[in-house]
Amino acid sequence: MKKYWQVFQISLQQELYYRASFIMDRARSITIVIAFYAFWTALFSDRATLLGFSKSQMLTYVLGMNILRALIFSDKTWEMLREINMGRLSYYLIRPISYIRYCLCRDMADKCMHLVSSVLEVSFALLILNIPFYVPRDFLTVLTFLTASAFAMLLYFLMTYAVGALAFWTAESMGPRFCFELFLEFAAGAFFPLDVLPRSLKTAFELLPFSSLLYFPLNIFLERLDPEALLRGFAIQIFWIGIFFYFTRAIWNKGLQAYCAEGG
């Protein structure tokens, strides 16, 4: 366990060392928040509710989006693609270390940095802009939200790990990964709540694993789900975690058999 703690610490130090990249990453998230905050504020200028959201719920969704993006979507799987394609994966395979745990620790360090930064950004925005923030009435809501977020992190890790395994078969996995990431972000509700979409599209997206990542936890926080919807949401999350757990393991094992350490 100690070696993984070291990986976590080194990764954290690396994040702190490459500050410019980190700041640019944050700048990206902040501009998304600014754009959607302004957009929704303009929409709520002459109405109290829209799409079943009150103004405070919608603006909390936008701010929560920033925090959950940092917590769930921060990852280092792009590095995994490079490591496989350039043969650097061999360094890990010959060492007494589990690559998946190594990646997990690296991801956690990234998530920690981004989470702290996003919480500070949101707190700053709340103070400066005097945004009406929706606070859950029940403490149990917060616990349920945290549980759903933890499941979302696990699901996202398994999904990106599966997509990353594409690199075992092709050196051209960067493009498909980019495509997957963009689809995932939109389908997860990382730009806007899925309630905006036509009903049929929304229903389809709710059954896919993506909405479990962001839209579902945020709806829990905003107390917009009845007990039935809550149970259904958790069932969908657990179902997809199960599917991806086996799928990712299978594809990774197949990939390792196909791996020939090109360039390593």
Binding site: S173, M174, G175, P176, C179, L182, F186, F191
Partner: peptide, 19 residues
């Protein structure tokens, strides 16, 4: 790099279509 290019193009189109 057909697959990679297709992926980048697909991503750009997805962003455009979703917005």
């Amino acid at each position: 790099n057909r697959w990679s290019s297709l992926g980048w193009l697909g991503g750009k189109m997805i962003r455009f279509i979703f917005f």
